[in-house]
Design a protein around this nucleic acid. Sequence first.
DNA 1: AGTATCGGATACTGTTGAGTATCGCACCCG
DNA 2: CGGGTGCGATACTCAACAGTATCCGATACT
Lengths: 218, 218
Amino acid sequence: MSTSRPDPDRHPDRRRRPARDDVRRALLDAAARLFARQGIEGASLDDVAADAGFTKGAVYSNFGSKEGLVAALVEDRTSAYLDLGLEAVDELDGSMAVRAQVLGDRLTAASDEQRDWHLLFFELWQRAVRSDDADGAFRDRRESLRAAVAEAMEEHAARAGATLSMPATDLAIVLMALSNGLAMERMVAPEDVPEELLGKVLALVVGDTPAPRPGDAQ
Amino acid sequence: MSTSRPDPDRHPDRRRRPARDDVRRALLDAAARLFARQGIEGASLDDVAADAGFTKGAVYSNFGSKEGLVAALVEDRTSAYLDLGLEAVDELDGSMAVRAQVLGDRLTAASDEQRDWHLLFFELWQRAVRSDDADGAFRDRRESLRAAVAEAMEEHAARAGATLSMPATDLAIVLMALSNGLAMERMVAPEDVPEELLGKVLALVVGDTPAPRPGDAQ
DNA sequence: AGTATCGGATACTGTTGAGTATCGCACCCG
DNA sequence: CGGGTGCGATACTCAACAGTATCCGATACT
């Protein structure tokens, strides 16, 4: 028994080497955390590696450079973000106004919960804007998110039997812009931005709400 | 005559010492430019000073530290921004929908024109969010901008004889969020964000537009 | 004019952090 | 079980940059 292969389920053994993918994950997670909190320039590779329980060597072995780590982070986080967006848009029903309200609430909750990641997002976005054409990855991801959102909106409008107030692609952009903009405002001053605001505005914009005048027959 | 005080209106004399305020201005402008384009961490004080036609000595003499320069920049640019916002909101008339549309167009034009400054703004905003309570300056400025916008909106609604669809303070936030969010989107992909989109959405949100159904009597 | 002061230039310091060269242990193969 | 290799640790290099000490010349005061 003592000669058999050591049990991998032991408590974290100091002398056991972690699987490659675990190292990658741990590094990416630590990078997301520290980059979000201190800025990408503000966090050193030593810090990131230490936070993940490794050393800089692990970073260079896995990503080749700081830039490489950031690139991997873009891939990783943008797809997570896209998934989150698509999930929020799923399983809505009722009138368009109700759908809009619920979607708004979900998105607001999500960005409160993931404050750090959202903050990181803005920094990645800044980089994408500055690097005049490089880092197309971020742009591409944004583009597919927009397309997905537009499609989902058309589908919902059809199912709810409503007509959209403007082209779905424009609405998709408005949704993203508003959600990002309000998230920003909420980060600076949470108490100034009511939780249900995004939903309310979306309902107004999406356009099949009757003006809220009592006595008005749909 | 040759013994009289040298004429200050001569062409820029290499041996003439520039007035203190001119130095300050030149440094602030250079800082705004470079910080916007390369990020605050990404631009060195040597670069900034050189771009303004001076050396680092001038920066330390005027601002004491890099942090001091950034703080001065916050003061300078945020008040410029506020002025710009108030100007955009002035001299609007017609129905609320028309006012909203015109305001939207103006704001969109302004942020296209001042792409660099706007980019810098996002970075200052990030700093304000990260520095948990320090740098209240930025927060304060945002707060007064919001108040001013809210007040202006109420005034316009009163003058146009319209009722706002929600509290003016909420509307102010929506306006700021949307304007910032769309500006972001336009920076990544200008062709995807129609110029008149902000105006359209504002008109919808502000709320006195009849739904665009032909045959509907106001 | 003669002198003091102020403000920017110049030259230097110390530190930080990205990147690299090399090492050595743990896993895998025969 | 014994050598080879992959991967992370360790210890270094080198450059960039914030900050400082000092200097020097133009303005301001008498």
